[in-house]
Lab assay of single mutants.
Amino acid sequence: LRLEVKLGQGCFGEVWMGTWNGTTRVAIKTLKPGTMSPEAFLQEAQVMKKLRHEKLVQLYAVVSEEPIYIVTEYMSKGSLLDFLKGETGKYLRLPQLVDMAAQIASGMAYVERMNYVHRDLRAANILVGENLVCKVADFGLARLIEDNEYTARQGAKFPIKWTAPEAALYGRFTIKSDVWSFGILLTELTTKGRVPYPGMVNREVLDQVERGYRMPCPPECPESLHDLMCQCWRKEPEERPTFEYLQAFL
């Protein structure tokens, strides 16, 4: 395994491009020591290896001592969030954005069929390849993070704006909380990567959403798509659509 080009840095580690087995181009995620327990990670990795779908980033291998390494397929255009905010983002029109959403829903419909939960679905965790191919990455890892700023769910590192209220408040993460996050991801797509709930801080978002506030229809977004977002944001988790439905609708 060779680490060649550093692609990015996040709160919990770095991402590199490299070569595996001398020939395969891969992405390598390294986790800061202390982010998660190697034992817990190894268990999760076994499950992650079983998830194989064309719209999920394929896991190739893991190094399960500290520092933990995760070796996955390489996606040339990086994260969907950076892609939307970058040069190419300007030229993306609604049909392409909807197609990308459908690809993500397709990957998540598979996660749904496998009775698995992602827990951290957002544009930053979707990767883009050639020809606007989108794949879901980092599934299941969020559960293992041991950082206090994260586990408190009120901490600075927790993605509260993407998280369903029952998950943020009571830790009830299910495929239905993933559906909520998918609704937020749809706003990221239609606004080219704007942060959700602009002008609001995490605490406010939690309070307002509890009181029934939902983001309005983004500019140039059809009402039918906003309606779909609002279905994803129904207060009762069981009233939210399935990913199978979302995939078919898109």
Results as ranks from 00 to 15, higher is better:
Gly107Pro: 00
Phe182His: 03
Tyr150Asp: 03
Trp16Val: 15
Leu56His: 06
Leu250Ala: 09
Arg153Met: 06
Leu42Trp: 10
Arg211Cys: 10
Arg143Asp: 02
Lys85Val: 12
Leu84Tyr: 06
Glu210Val: 08
Leu97Met: 12
Gly10Trp: 01
Leu225Gln: 07
Val47Pro: 00
Phe249Asp: 09
Cys230Ser: 10
Phe12Gly: 02
Ala105Tyr: 01
Asn148Ser: 09
Arg153Ser: 14
Met48Pro: 03
Met75Asp: 04
Thr88Glu: 10
Gly22Asn: 10
Pro237Glu: 11
Pro241Gln: 08
Phe249Pro: 06
Lys161Ala: 05
Ser106Gly: 10
Thr163Ile: 02
Lys157Val: 14
Val62Leu: 12
Thr35Asp: 07
Arg2Thr: 02
Ala45Glu: 03
Thr19Ile: 12
Arg25Asp: 10
Arg214Phe: 08
Lys85Cys: 11
Tyr213Cys: 06
Thr163Glu: 01
Glu188Phe: 03
Gly129Leu: 07
Thr242Arg: 12
Arg240Glu: 01
Asn115Arg: 14
Pro216Thr: 09
His226Ala: 10
Ala124Phe: 01
Gly10Tyr: 00
Asp178Thr: 00
Glu44Asn: 02
Pro218Ser: 08
Arg211Asp: 09
Gly107Ser: 05
Trp180Gly: 00
Lys157Cys: 11
Tyr116Pro: 00
Lys32Ser: 04
Gly107Lys: 00
Lys32Tyr: 03
Ala102Cys: 07
Leu84Ser: 11
Leu189Thr: 06
Gly129His: 12
Gln103Phe: 06
Arg153Lys: 10
Ser181Gln: 04
Arg214Lys: 11
Gly129Trp: 04
Val133Ala: 11
Leu250Trp: 07
Phe173Val: 09
Arg52Thr: 13
Ile175Lys: 15
Lys90Phe: 14
Thr19Phe: 11
Met48Lys: 01
Met17Gly: 15
Gly8Ala: 04
Gly171Gln: 06
Ile184Phe: 03
Ile126Asp: 02
Phe139Ser: 01
Glu87Trp: 15
Val195His: 14
Gln9Pro: 02
Thr190Asp: 04
Phe243Gly: 04
Thr242Gly: 14
Gly78Glu: 04
Gly129Met: 11
Leu185Tyr: 08
Ala156Trp: 03
Phe243Met: 15
Met17Ile: 07
Val136Ile: 11
Gln43Gly: 13
Asn202Ile: 07
Lys85Asn: 11
Lys55Ile: 06
Gly86Thr: 10
Val195Ile: 12
Met75Trp: 00
Glu149Met: 09
Ala102Ile: 08
Ala61Lys: 13
Met200Asp: 04
Met215His: 04
Lys6Gln: 12
Cys230Trp: 10
Phe249Gly: 06
Leu186Val: 06
Leu206Trp: 07
Asp120Val: 01
Ala109Thr: 15
Leu81Thr: 14
Glu44Arg: 02
Lys50Ser: 11
Pro67Ser: 04
Ser37Leu: 07
Asn202Phe: 04
Val179Tyr: 14
Leu81Phe: 14
Glu236Asn: 13
Glu39His: 13
Glu87Gly: 14
Arg93Pro: 06
Thr35Met: 10
Lys161Asp: 02
Glu188Val: 00
Phe139Pro: 02
Asp138Gly: 02
Gln231Phe: 14
Pro198Asn: 05
Gln9Phe: 08
Ala152Thr: 04
Asp82Ser: 09
Lys85His: 12
Pro67Thr: 03
Tyr110Thr: 05
His226Arg: 11
Ala164Gln: 01
Thr163Pro: 01
Thr190Gln: 05
Met36Phe: 01
Thr190Ser: 04
Ala61Glu: 02
Leu246Tyr: 08
Pro165Lys: 06
